[in-house]
Amino acid sequence: MLETKPKHPSFYLISSAVDGNENSIEKLLQFYDPYISKCCLRPLYDEYGNVYIAVDMELKGRIREALMKMISEFEIAVS
C-alpha cells in the first residue's frame, strides 16, 4: 500500500509552530522543502559552457528565513 503525503499541514502543526514550538517550525519547513527547492532551481554553467540545473542554496535560505518570520507573525483568528 502506498503512503500518501497530506496536501496541507495540520491545524495542530500550524498552531504549534505559531506558538513557537521549534520542532513544529522545523516540521513545517520540512513539509514545504520540496516546493521551496523547486522554486529555487537555477541554471548553472561549468567552465565548458554546459548547463546544470541546481538549487540556489542562498535563495532557499532566504525563503526559509522569510517563512520562519511569517510563522512568528502569523495570527490565528478564532471565531
Rank of each mutant, 00 (worst) to 15 (best):
K7G: 08
S79E: 11
P43Y: 02
I36M: 01
K38S: 06
F31R: 04
Y45V: 01
S16V: 07
Y12M: 11
M68V: 06
L59Y: 13
K69Q: 00
P9V: 07
K27D: 11
G49S: 00
L13H: 01
S15F: 10
S15W: 09
K69W: 02
V18M: 06
V55L: 05
M68A: 07
E75R: 12
C40F: 01
K27H: 07
F11Y: 14
V18L: 04
S79H: 14
I53C: 07
Q30C: 09
L59F: 10
K27N: 08
G61F: 03
D19Q: 15
E73Q: 14
L41V: 04
E73R: 15
E58W: 09
I14N: 01
P43R: 04
V78T: 13
P34A: 04
M68F: 06
I25L: 06
E58K: 14
E58I: 02
R64F: 10
E58A: 09
K7E: 11
L41F: 04
E3A: 12
V18Y: 05
I71D: 07
N21L: 10
E65Q: 13
I63N: 06
S10D: 01
E47S: 07
E75C: 11
P9N: 05
P9S: 08
E26A: 13
L44R: 11
A77L: 13
E22V: 12
I36E: 00
P34C: 04
N23I: 11
T4V: 13
A66Q: 11
R42T: 04
Y52L: 08
M68K: 14
S37V: 05
I71N: 07
N21Q: 11
N21W: 05
Y52P: 08
N23G: 12
Q30P: 03
S16F: 05
V18H: 03
V55Y: 01
D33A: 07
F74V: 00
N21Y: 08
A66Y: 10
D19H: 13
R62H: 12
K69N: 07
D33E: 10
I25V: 13
R62D: 14
G61P: 10
F11R: 15
P43I: 01
L2E: 15
V78L: 14
G20W: 06
E3Y: 15
R64I: 08
L2P: 14
K7Q: 12
Y32R: 06
A77C: 13
M1I: 12
I36R: 02
P34I: 03
H8T: 12
M57K: 15
Q30E: 13
M1L: 13
P9R: 06
A77P: 09
Y45P: 00
S15N: 14
L2Q: 15
M70W: 08
L29D: 05
R64E: 15
S24M: 03
T4R: 15
S79R: 15
N50G: 08
L29V: 06
E65M: 11
K27R: 09
M57F: 12
S72C: 08
L41Y: 00
I71G: 05
Y52D: 01
I53W: 11
E22F: 09
V55H: 00
M57Y: 14
M70D: 15
L41D: 00
M1G: 13
N50Y: 07
